[in-house]
Design a protein around this nucleic acid. Structure first.
Length: 328
DNA sequence: TGTCCACGTCT
DNA sequence: AAGACGTGGAC
């Protein structure tokens, strides 16, 4: 093995350092396809550590494509509760159905067919090809992108264009052990070549890394300034029952259960004497007044939920946070 | 406290 | 094609 062979260095590191993860267990081809599908959906925008317990529970309840395709939507969502980006769960079911109907229950083996499935885009299609089908693809996720930028010390707008990154990615091409190799690169990104304070002393690629040589790790600050929006949450309580509603009003957490809310202006928020809490959402910071004892009419979408029964509903963390703030 | 991760997918 | 969609943990 030549010292300069990057794929070999990466794989050797992986063999010695990979995490034991439930979707990496040796299993049948069919299971591997299904495990890859489920885990990759869960891993979109979500860290490994968060996904692990969800994956295990999900697989127990929906052990194969068929059971998932025929499962009740609410039951699927219940097992997604707290994971966020709930359209992933809805799309996963649609994809399971489509695979059974249109592809005879076989996970497709080319990018176009995979991308035709709901919830599968460029990243996931390539990760499935590599991980489930052992094809020589390297999916471009945040980890891979960061590694490429550092290895080649890419900083200019032009250099970090998508096309250029894909071109540079070819530098890592390798045709064997594609399953391990794709996961290995992402694993190095997650465990070693971290966004902040990378662990260069244990990195197998330091000799190949321009960022390391220049001591310039491109710690980026995108400064995506999230806007702040103001809301009033109306808490109607009767003894131990709370009024919740199925959200049709706001674009976030669509069709999930929330406390009734209105958007308000900054002034009203500022001068309110009610309890206030902050909740971060994906693209905004929410500042919320907790107004208790409001009189509310029951509507078609409202439900009166007993405190002890509250977990029977699918509650996004957003709702749980507000609920918890009431208990203090 | 506030910022970042977080290119992932869909609209 | 810019913005929407959740969450939690590191720092």
């Amino acid at each position: 093995m030549r010292e300069s062979n990057i794929p070999n260095k990466i794989l050797k590191w992986y063999d010695n350092n990979k995490r034991i993860l439930p979707w990496r267990k040796k299993t049948s081809t069919k299971n591997r396809e299904y495990f890859t599908l489920v885990s990759e959906f869960m891993l979109q925008q979500t860290q490994v550590k968060t996904v692990v317990p969800y994956f295990e529970k999900f697989i127990k309840n929906f052990p194969n494509l068929k059971s998932l395709a025929s499962a009740n939507d609410q039951k699927i969502l219940k097992h997604w509760e707290g994971l966020g980006y709930y359209s992933r769960a809805r799309n996963l079911k649609k994809t399971a159905i489509k695979i059974l109907k249109e592809f005879n229950g076989n996970l497709p083996k080319d990018v176009e067919k995979l991308m035709s499935l709901p919830g599968i885009g460029e990243y996931t299609s390539r990760s499935i090809l590599a991980i489930a089908h052992n094809r020589p693809y390297i999916p471009m996720d945040g980890n891979v992108e960061r590694i490429i930028k550092r290895i080649f010390l890419l900083k200019e707008e032009k250099e970090i264009s998508k096309e250029n990154l894909i071109k540079k990615k070819a530098f890592f091409s390798y045709s064997k052990r594609s399953n391990d190799y794709a996961q290995a690169i992402m694993e190095i990104g997650a465990l070693v070549c971290k966004p902040i304070s990378p662990s260069c002393s244990i990195c197998p690629l330091t000799l190949n890394c321009k960022a390391f040589k220049k001591k310039d790790f491109l710690v980026k600050s995108k400064n995506k300034l999230n806007k702040t929006k103001y809301f009033e949450a109306c808490i109607y309580r009767h003894k131990n029952k709370y009024l919740l509603i199925k959200n049709k009003k706001f674009n976030f957490l669509k069709n999930l259960v929330i406390f009734p809310m209105n958007e308000i202006n900054e002034k009203k928020f500022k001068y309110s004497l009610s309890k206030k809490i902050n909740i971060k959402m994906s693209n905004m910071n929410m500042k919320i007044i907790i107004s208790e004892n409001n009189k509310l009419k029951k509507t078609r979408d409202s439900l009166l939920v007993d405190k002890s029964n509250i977990n029977k509903h699918i509650l996004p963390s957003f709702t749980k946070k507000i609920f918890n703030s009431l208990q203090n």
